[in-house]
Design a binder for these strands. Structure first.
Lengths: 245, 245
DNA sequence: CGTAAAATTGAGCTGTCTCAATCAATGTGG
DNA sequence: CCACATTGATTGAGACAGCTCAATTTTACG
């Protein structure tokens, strides 16, 4: 039962997570952290935590004794500047580690905001590290996740430093399509897309006004359609060409 | 023994590295990887490799069986785009890990170019990982290095996404001053600065022409002085204020 | 149903780029 | 040791991508 998804403080939270099937908490499940089970999986104590849309889930500089994984909903990790601007450093989909750094550091470098209603599982760090030391499989799985995360940030820097507004937005959309597709959530080039234009703006280093015009352009060129928190890539070829630049 | 530094073009290479004292290969030395010694240090087989200024040291997609550390000279890791532009993802000073990802991945994600003449030590990856598994101290040291690296990239993305040209250049200079200072190479706000304006441009996502004007501005406002591959911060306050935005 | 958040559109401005040319520095071969 | 070739720094003029300010409409939510 979804139950009254409550605050911030640990609540029933993400029951759906397991119910929705294996696709969901793939990292957690892939790591064998999900729950004590026969298949060689290792139990690690965990807490669940959920937050409503648009709320801050974790605050910069918060001291974490756990390593959270997003189970349900979309979130973003975001760095705020003194002048009010902010940069989204990663968009977190269900199954994503909040940040690989949390394995080594307990202080959170950036805030995490919920885009939709979000639910996380927070794995105890020291237990998790013990598992890492003893389970090579888990180690490999986790270092792969870390590598992917790292490559994504490098790619972000390249996009921000070298590409045009249209390319950045196109690439963002294509990335999210690919990540959704890995999870089996893309059908006929359409997928759930809860980001607001301001999220896209903060992720691409643009103004939301300009993002609006760029997307308007995409739409009028028959590249994408957006409606009702869902995005459909009408012309994948065209979008890809635009993105490659 | 140090032996004839071989490889690539096996040259004499970085004998200076040790001779210059502890400041230099600090990571390697801090890790106790330097050479077999009584102090609990762990020997790991290593090769040395050197390259002249402006040459490519490692090429994107190269398969590495080792984890290199820069011992001497400055290098940059850089991603090239099809349109000829390129983004510098990190500036490597002596003592820096080429990339923490190499602990987990053997394929190099981006090329590494020498800025000055450069010399590296390449530690055997599997031996290094064995050491990590058995030496908590080394593990901590290395995960710290990884964390620092990660934070630097995040910071780069924020700079590229949200800050003005002047801020980006100012921050680059201040970062390099700080990193040089950690190594004890800053005297009276002056330090070795072998970067060309094109390097600065590629690192900040700007045109070298515009970098030139920005630096010209800094100079004429009495913020910095550059001459003879050395940079002096004349007005640290002013530069910092500019950088903060 | 009312209020806040998000999307859209217009007009003008500016930071940064492009193109082009010159000059200084550094390195190379004869 | 000089002439030449290459690389790097500097400066000017004009163009444009993306920003700011401002107003309106649409959508979402308590």
């Amino acid at each position: 039962m979804t139950g009254p998804t409550s605050q911030f403080s640990e609540k029933t939270g993400c029951n759906n997570c397991i119910m929705r099937g294996l696709g969901l908490c793939e990292v957690a499940i892939g790591l064998g952290l999900d729950h004590p089970d026969p298949g060689g999986a290792v139990p690690i104590s965990q807490k669940k935590l959920s937050a409503p849309a648009r709320r801050t889930v974790f605050r910069k500089d918060e001291l974490m004794d756990s390593v959270p994984i997003v189970c349900e909903g979309w979130a973003v990790s975001v760095a705020g500047l003194s002048n009010g601007r902010q940069q989204i450093l990663s968009i977190l989909l269900p199954g994503d580690l909040l940040s690989g750094s949390l394995l080594f550091e307990q202080r959170l470098s950036w805030s995490v905001n919920a885009v939709t209603e979000v639910c996380c599982r927070c794995f105890n760090r020291s237990e998790l590290r013990d598992v890492l030391a003893t389970s090579p499989k888990t180690f490999d799985r986790l270092s792969l996740a870390y590598t992917v995360e790292r490559n994504r940030i490098d790619q972000l820097a390249i996009d921000l430093g070298q590409r045009t507004a249209e390319q950045r937005v196109a690439r963002l959309i294509l990335n999210l399509r690919d990540r959704s597709a890995e999870r089996g959530w893309v059908h006929d080039q359409a997928f759930d897309f809860p980001l607001r234009q301001t999220h896209i703006a903060d992720a691409t280093g643009l103004t939301s006004i300009h993002v609006n015009r760029v997307i308007g352009g995409f739409r009028s060129h028959g590249l994408v359609e957006i409606s009702d928190r869902s995005l459909k890539i009408v012309n994948p070829e065209g979008l890809r060409n635009l993105a490659e630049g």
